[in-house]
C-alpha cells in the first residue's frame, strides 16, 4: 500500500507558548559533535525554516557549525506525561531529530525563482519570513547542488539555474535507495495485512513487489516535495497514478483543513515562532485570482441581482 503522506504538523513546534520550556528530545550524537576548525559555542540551534512540502513554517536543527541540518519530528499522544527526576512534565511530546539533505530545503526556492534565470545562491536563500534560511549556505550537503541545478557563471558567484531533468533523476536515485532500504529491512508495504512470522516460500521477487516498494518510497520522498513535483516524479518512475492514493491524500488534507482546533494551534504557533507574518498562504491565493481590485469587487457587488447579459442575447 502506498504510504499516505503524514501530516506536516508533526514537525511544528507546539509547546512554545509554555514559559517553562523543556523538551524531551532524542538527538543523534553527530549533531553535537564539533568539527575541528570550529571554535564557537557548542550548542546546536533550533530554527524555523520553510517546509519544502507545505511551504509553511517547520522546525529544524542546525549543528553548531551550521554544517549539517536535521529536521525535528514531534511524536504526540494525547494522554501521556514524562517523569523527569522528581517532577512530572505534563507535556508528553517526544521530539526526534533526523538528518535531512539540505538540497530538499533549497529545492523549492530553486524551482520558484531559478527556472528561467540563474541566481547567486546567497541571494536565493534570503527569505524575509525565515531569516535563518541563510544558514543553509554553510551546510556541507549543499556542495552537491549541481545534482539538481546547473552552475552558471563564475565559481565565485555561486549562481545556479534549476534543471528539472537533473532533479528528477536525482530524486529517482533517492527513491530507489529508500526502496532498497525498505526491502533490506523487510518492511511490509503491500496492501494486505501479513503476519510478521510469515516467510515467503520463494526467494524470487515479483515485479509487483518492487513496484510497491518503489511506490512506498515515493510516498516517503514526497513528504519533502511540492505536490506537482511529486506527481512528476511518479511519472518519471514509470509508476501509474493510483487514484485511490490521490483520493486518500485529498481527504486527509481536507480533514486537516476542516479541523478548526488544529488550524488554531497552528496559527498560535506561527505568531509565537516568528514575528514576521506568514505570507505564504495569501500568496497562493493571489496567484489563483489575480488582479481583483477593490473596484472589481465593488462592481461584482453591484452586478449581483442582475441576470447575465448573455442570457438576453443569442450566442453566435
Amino acid at each position: 500500500m502506498p504510504r499516505v503522506k503524514a501530516s506536516p504538523k508533526k514537525c511544528i513546534k507546539t509547546n512554545i507558548q509554555q514559559p517553562t520550556n523543556s523538551w524531551v528530545f532524542l538527538l543523534k550524537g553527530e549533531a553535537l559533535e564539533l568539527s575541528e576548525q570550529y571554535t564557537g559555542t557548542g550548542t546546536p540551534d533550533i530554527v524555523t525554516l520553510r517546509h519544502p512540502n507545505t511551504g509553511e513554517s517547520a522546525v529544524f536543527l542546525f549543528s553548531p557549525a551550521n554544517n549539517s541540518v536535521q529536521e525535528i519530528l514531534t511524536y504526540n499522544e494525547a494522554k501521556r506525561s514524562w517523569f523527569i527526576d522528581e517532577t512530572v512534565k505534563s507535556d508528553g511530546k517526544m521530539h526526534l531529530s533526523t538528518p535531512i539533505d539540505p538540497i530538499f530545503l533549497v529545492l523549492p526556492y530553486l524551482r520558484k525563482y531559478c527556472s528561467s534565470q540563474a541566481i547567486p545562491l546567497d541571494q536565493l536563500l534570503r527569505d524575509e519570513e525565515f531569516p535563518e534560511t541563510e544558514r543553509l549556505l554553510k551546510s556541507s550537503g549543499l556542495k552537491y547542488l549541481n545534482m539538481i541545478a546547473d552552475r552558471k557563471g563564475d565559481e565565485e558567484l555561486n549562481a545556479f539555474k534549476y534543471n528539472e531533468e537533473k532533479t528528477l533523476s536525482w530524486l529517482k536515485k533517492k527513491t530507489e535507495r529508500v526502496a532498497e532500504i525498505l526491502k533490506q529491512k523487510n518492511i511490509h508495504v503491500g496492501s494486505s495485512a501479513m503476519s510478521a512470522t510469515f516467510v515467503k516460500s520463494s526467494k524470487s521477487e515479483s515485479p509487483a513487489d518492487t513496484d510497491s516498494h518503489l511506490r512506498y518510497a515515493h510516498g516517503i520522498v514526497s513528504e519533502y516535495l511540492m505536490d506537482d513535483l511529486s506527481q512528476k516524479l511518479l511519472k518519471y518512475l514509470n509508476l501509474p497514478e493510483d487514484p485511490q492514493f490521490n483520493l486518500k491524500r485529498k481527504s486527509t488534507n481536507m480533514l486537516a483543513q476542516n479541523d478548526p482546533k488544529k488550524t488554531k494551534v497552528e496559527e498560535e504557533n506561527k505568531s509565537s515562532t516568528s514575528n514576521v507574518l506568514d505570507l505564504s498562504k495569501p500568496e497562493q491565493k493571489t496567484t489563483k485570482t489575480p488582479l481583483l481590485t477593490s473596484k472589481d469587487k465593488a462592481r461584482a457587488k453591484a452586478a449581483s441581482g442582475s441576470k447575465t447579459i448573455s442570457s438576453f442575447f443569442k450566442k453566435t
Binding site: R299, A300, A303
Partner: peptide, 9 residues
C-alpha cells in the same frame, strides 16, 4: 465585450 461580471456589454 462583456465586463468581468457579465452583466453589461
Amino acid at each position: 465585450a462583456m465586463d468581468n461580471s457579465h452583466v453589461s456589454l
